[in-house]
Computed example of a mutant assay.
Amino acid sequence: MNNKSRLFKLFYSGFKNVLAFGLIAVLIASCSDLNFSGSKADKGHMDFHLTDAPASYDEVNVDVQGLRIHYTPQSSDTVTSDTTNSDGKWIDLPLDPIRLNLLELTNGIDSLIASADLDPGHYKELRLILGDDNDVVINGETHHLKVPSGQESGYKIKFKTDLESGDDLDVTIDFDAARSVHKAGKSGKYILKPVLKAFISGGEDMETGSIAGNVEPLDAEATVYAIMGTDTSSTQPDSEGAFTLVGLNVGSYDLNIQPANDAYNDTTLADIQVNAGEENNLGTITLSEN
């Protein structure tokens, strides 16, 4: 082999080593950028869903602009699940602004609005941030929904959980449209005052359950109420008579079914048990005629 060949071989070998080293450095830097507060394996995961109970409107459209959650590290010795202090911080969850008709998110249907890998720790309180493009449709007529001022930081939602490494949780935010839309006196204007609650709806930390079933006949136009003491949840069956009441605290409920059609009688089923993480399906409930 002549001198030129040897020099070329040495140059080529050195170039490959430099290129390989450069690629490794880029990969390390990229991984560092993606997981600047720890590897994905050190984190837990939360998906955030939005749902609603039926209301007597054609549509209730809300302009969702953001979602925040309060976080306190596990390393804080002075913090418990019920405490918020200077060690905590607000986290803006990744959310693409979206306009949703709440009345399409009923009877167990929801919309995934945010998903995030999060550091282990104590999570307490959510804040839902709304824009100005909100309206309610009544008898085919659209009315703007005014959002009260002073809510730039978001609407408070009571919530708390401890997230561990490897946890995979679903969090559902229940936006009660029926109790959130208000008519402003005789002005003909409408105001949006969100009534919200949140609960773990999937994962090992579920603390709520659900009741499901079917109501017949369809022309009864029933409303279904789950009642336990002062705790009441309601829904209306869909076009096939199916209903689901989600986010119910554990306990024994009375299920009251009230038809809008006077041709049928009210019906109450007593002692319906709700267990954490379970759906109690009651099958078909047939209302009697007057």
Score class of each variant (00 low, 15 high):
K156T: 04
Y155Q: 09
L67Y: 02
N214D: 10
I191F: 02
V64C: 11
Q236H: 12
I257Y: 03
E59Q: 15
G185S: 03
S56I: 04
S165D: 08
N3Q: 12
S288F: 04
L126Y: 00
P73E: 01
G251T: 01
D176T: 05
L100Q: 07
V60S: 07
L10A: 10
P194H: 02
S234I: 03
I28G: 14
Y155K: 14
E221D: 14
V246I: 11
Y253H: 07
V60K: 08
N61Q: 07
S81M: 13
G277E: 06
N265L: 13
T83H: 11
Q258V: 13
A198F: 11
K16L: 12
A53T: 11
N85G: 07
D92A: 14
N3I: 13
S56Y: 09
R99V: 02
Y71I: 06
N256T: 15
S5V: 05
V274H: 01
Y57D: 01
S76W: 01
P148C: 07
T80V: 08
L23F: 07
Q258K: 14
E240F: 05
A226I: 00
S234Q: 14
T244C: 04
L255M: 00
L7E: 12
I28V: 15
T286H: 10
G88I: 05
P94D: 10
A263F: 09
L169T: 06
Q236F: 08
T223R: 05
D117V: 03
V171Y: 07
V250G: 06
D110L: 02
I211P: 06
Y12Q: 04
L255E: 00
K4N: 08
L118V: 09
P194E: 03
I227A: 01
F36I: 06
S239C: 02
D110R: 10
F199K: 15
Y264M: 05
E104R: 14
Y71N: 08
H182G: 05
G88H: 05
A198P: 10
G229K: 06
V79A: 15
R6N: 10
N107V: 01
T83K: 15
N275Q: 10
G22V: 05
L19H: 12
L287W: 02
A53L: 14
L23A: 06
K186F: 12
D168C: 09
L10E: 13
P54K: 10
I138G: 06
V79R: 09
A212I: 04
M228I: 02
P120K: 13
I24R: 12
R6Q: 05
G154W: 03
N265V: 08
E216K: 15
L19P: 04
G66L: 09
F36E: 11
I173P: 00
L67M: 11
H182P: 04
Q236W: 03
N280D: 09
G140L: 10
H70A: 07
D42V: 03
A177R: 08
N101G: 07
E216D: 14
D266V: 13
G131I: 04
G121D: 12
G247P: 14
G241S: 09
S201Y: 02
F159L: 07
Q74Y: 14
G22H: 02
A226D: 00
P54E: 03
L23K: 13
G283I: 00
S5H: 05
I113F: 08
V215P: 00
T51L: 08
S149M: 06
Q236A: 15
G283Y: 01
